[in-house]
Amino acid sequence: MRPFNVPIKNDVTEQNRAIFDDLESKLGFVPNIYATYALSDNTPARYLSFANGKTSLSNKEKEAINLIVSQVNGCVYCQAAHTQLGKMNGFTEDQTIELRKGTAGFNGKLDAIVKLTKAITGNRGVISDDVLRVFFDAGYTKENLVDVILNVGEKTTTNLLHNVTQIPVDFPEAPTLDRTEPQTV
């Protein structure tokens, strides 16, 4: 067992208590991963600014990215959280599973973004021209590419935090899949 306890409101700074109150009012609770960010005095505000910044991507595209990144990185916390958030953004349970496997046969444009994201995440940014061409052929732009890369970084940060701390998952468990291998095409 890792020696990380999830901080509660009384354990954190006044600044982080305000963030906990805001999260509680928006989500109904403070997810353990956000509370764990509060082990640092400054990280919750910094992370939330990063995660909630403006982007050229839709919420559905961001959730597709979050699902495949979390699968490739083996983060069970984020797989669970983004399965729920994916459903809240219009995906079915089966679609969240398909996205975590690295495809989106139900939507060609999402398929291109998921395959690009899988390749970026799994290969640490070293991808083939073919993967990039498919992404652009699907109608995405260079701005979208930069926003995908930023989203990968943001989600990887949370994946790493959970994978290191192993704090309890406080979302319904996502279906177990084999870890997804990177796209090499």
Results as ranks from 00 to 15, higher is better:
V6C: 03
I8C: 06
K9E: 15
V12E: 08
V12Q: 08
T13R: 10
E14W: 00
D21G: 11
D22W: 01
D22I: 01
S25T: 12
S25M: 11
G28M: 08
T36A: 13
Y37R: 00
L39T: 05
D41N: 15
N42H: 10
P44I: 10
R46L: 08
L48M: 15
S49T: 05
S49M: 01
F50K: 03
K54H: 06
K54L: 10
T55D: 10
N59R: 12
K60E: 14
N66C: 11
L67Y: 09
I68F: 09
V69G: 03
C75D: 03
C78F: 01
Q79C: 15
Q79D: 07
A81Y: 07
A81P: 10
L85S: 10
L85A: 12
K87R: 15
M88S: 12
F91T: 05
F91D: 09
T92E: 02
T92D: 06
T96H: 05
I97T: 14
I97N: 10
R100K: 12
G102P: 04
G102I: 02
F106W: 07
A112G: 11
I113D: 04
V114E: 07
L116E: 02
L116A: 02
A119M: 03
T121M: 00
N123P: 09
V126L: 11
V126I: 13
S128N: 01
V131S: 14
L132W: 01
L132F: 12
V134T: 15
D137K: 13
D137S: 14
D137F: 01
A138E: 02
N144F: 01
L150S: 11
E154N: 13
E154T: 15
E154D: 08
T156N: 14
T156F: 05
T156E: 09
T158Q: 13
T158P: 00
N159V: 00
H162C: 06
N163A: 13
V164S: 09
T165P: 03
T165G: 11
P168S: 12
P172H: 04
E173P: 05
E173V: 15
P175N: 01
P182S: 03
V185S: 13
